[in-house]
Design a protein around this nucleic acid. Sequence first.
DNA 1: GGTTAAGCGAGACGGTACGTCTCGTCTTACG
DNA 2: CGTAAGACGAGACGTACCGTCTCGCTTAACC
Lengths: 199, 199, 199, 199
Amino acid sequence: MPAASPQPRRPRAGSRRDEAARLAVLHAADDLLVEHGFGALTVEAIARRAGVAKQTIYRWWPSKVEILLDTLIEDSDKRLPVPTERPTAESIRGYLGDFARFLTDDPAGKVLLALIAEAQHDPHTAKSFHTRYLGPRRDQERDMLARAIDAGEVSPRLGLDATIDALVGPIVYCALTGSSIPRDLADTLAEGLLRPRSN
Amino acid sequence: MPAASPQPRRPRAGSRRDEAARLAVLHAADDLLVEHGFGALTVEAIARRAGVAKQTIYRWWPSKVEILLDTLIEDSDKRLPVPTERPTAESIRGYLGDFARFLTDDPAGKVLLALIAEAQHDPHTAKSFHTRYLGPRRDQERDMLARAIDAGEVSPRLGLDATIDALVGPIVYCALTGSSIPRDLADTLAEGLLRPRSN
Amino acid sequence: MPAASPQPRRPRAGSRRDEAARLAVLHAADDLLVEHGFGALTVEAIARRAGVAKQTIYRWWPSKVEILLDTLIEDSDKRLPVPTERPTAESIRGYLGDFARFLTDDPAGKVLLALIAEAQHDPHTAKSFHTRYLGPRRDQERDMLARAIDAGEVSPRLGLDATIDALVGPIVYCALTGSSIPRDLADTLAEGLLRPRSN
Amino acid sequence: MPAASPQPRRPRAGSRRDEAARLAVLHAADDLLVEHGFGALTVEAIARRAGVAKQTIYRWWPSKVEILLDTLIEDSDKRLPVPTERPTAESIRGYLGDFARFLTDDPAGKVLLALIAEAQHDPHTAKSFHTRYLGPRRDQERDMLARAIDAGEVSPRLGLDATIDALVGPIVYCALTGSSIPRDLADTLAEGLLRPRSN
DNA sequence: GGTTAAGCGAGACGGTACGTCTCGTCTTACG
DNA sequence: CGTAAGACGAGACGTACCGTCTCGCTTAACC
């Protein structure tokens, strides 16, 4: 958020964005998704629930998907940080476990699943979802893994991205299909994929 | 919903279901999904494209999702059979590779991804998708794996379902996120998860 | 009520227009105009009041003005017919009086005033109003006057249309400005404008 | 907080109404009405065209109708004065002719017609229009007519107001319905309504 | 071979949400 | 304090589909 630029250029007179309205929309969208599902997540319903005019939503978000992305980014930065400091095999296992818990227990997990889903239906969603969420997060995860390899903590047989897909994929797939995630899944995945070929 | 009254006498007076209309609907739905995506897949559009009245669709399918399920079941039984005869480690690896190709290259793969997605949005879809597709297929896969274990071909460390999730999950996840599926992914997964712990 | 056309041509299969919905819309529009004024006459309000879907209105009428025109034409044909049989000076005076009463007392009079007004604001309204209402009615009035002249009943100094404007104008103007219409206005107008110059 | 200008002849410190803004609004409203019709005459459009903030309009005028009234009053006082000095039959005829020309040729004539129209749709407009424009003008016209009667110039058969309505009504009605106003209309009206009954 | 009942194309219907527009109010920064 | 700028809650606009409901036609099994 930019410091007051001293220039007398006047980018904006008068009104500025109403933070209360912004938060009301974000929370309303989150609540509606969790309570009544993506089908009930209409712009009209969000506006109604947030006590906000539809135009206020359209002024700041191009679609309801971007609202969800905003909440997801804020929430997962806060509640599911990628461990970037001195990563160990242990911290990677821990991250996978946290990720599984995030998906199944955190409301924001529902948001993530809904966005993965909606990205299949709509190319705009796919684009935005990759650019704003998946890409940046993958960058951090790739970095984490690369450092762990450098440190000799792990030595996966697959490429960086493929390894991450192989670790994260099963967890996401279980969440998508509604299976409970077995307690030992994350550890076994890590063990099977992060250690060098034994023969 | 068994027709099966034993007597062949009087299956119905007057008229029977129009097979041409049924196929036209199935193909229209498939084509629309592939050409314009799930967003364009409305009942009205299907009816228009199939040259069929909306009522004819609603008479035989409770929702557009069931139309997709019909095509998916037919197509994946035909083009992606689960190898049930004398399964080997090799045939399991082969199935995983076929599955990856099905998802990315076959039009029916798009249908499967769309249904996984829609199941996140709508509980009815989820129910039907599990009952009619995922469940039966998982039964066959579980059976395949169990026989391979019995035959001493493989010895996974995880439970049956968890193992399948761990093998299939990364492939599905790559397809969902649009990453290309690395050539050696299936093999490495099989190797990492189907052989006993090396230490 | 056209006789059944013998041709097997099939102009319409299945559904036909719902007369009940048509009447509900007409009455709702009329009622809303009279009760709450033109400002409250929105398509949404009409639909709400008529218990009809908006699309049903848009399917059959290009704008709310055409709805009003429909009611006006039906009502004024019924309740303010132009005397076409053997017109006399007396019947013309009578028609002017009826017209004044129609404007002030009949709900359809409000519709006429609203349409005159709206025609000032919107060229489409003006066009339609003239083509569908003012024109045809003027034709009948012109005919009435011409026959009365032929019969020697009256001999106005102005042209046909100008004479009608001169007779009708004051009545409409009073209604538009909300002045009460003096009892002797119609008669005095007729006397002053329909008899030959006295000098 | 401007420094006090030395002259005390400034009735107020700080700011007074901005005459430039006032005129810009008046002209913008006028221009928009003439160029694009009443339908395009929104407060937002006026503000845009005048280079003025909406709030500035709402601060000084309760509605766009009052803006039009302001222009109409100024313009018609200036360009269509009621002949109040020693009125004659001739000057009344002249006034009617001027009025016809005002309605059809002067931009302010369009404003008058628009206000007559809007007064049908909205009671506030009607109230204000009568109080600020029609009433005062009618007072002057009534006075003109009364003096002419006193002077023996004319002797109408109808009451004062009814006579004026009868004279003005046809002209307004022609303008409202878009008919051209016949050259001899004003004179014939005057002759037919201002002279005593001939029999 | 006429009866009859279901399936069919067509499309009107009551609804809901869409994304856009303007309304009249409000808040803020500048001069 | 008046102004320009513009965000805000409100609600109507006209469109697209939803899922339901007649229609009138066609067709095939039954009598």
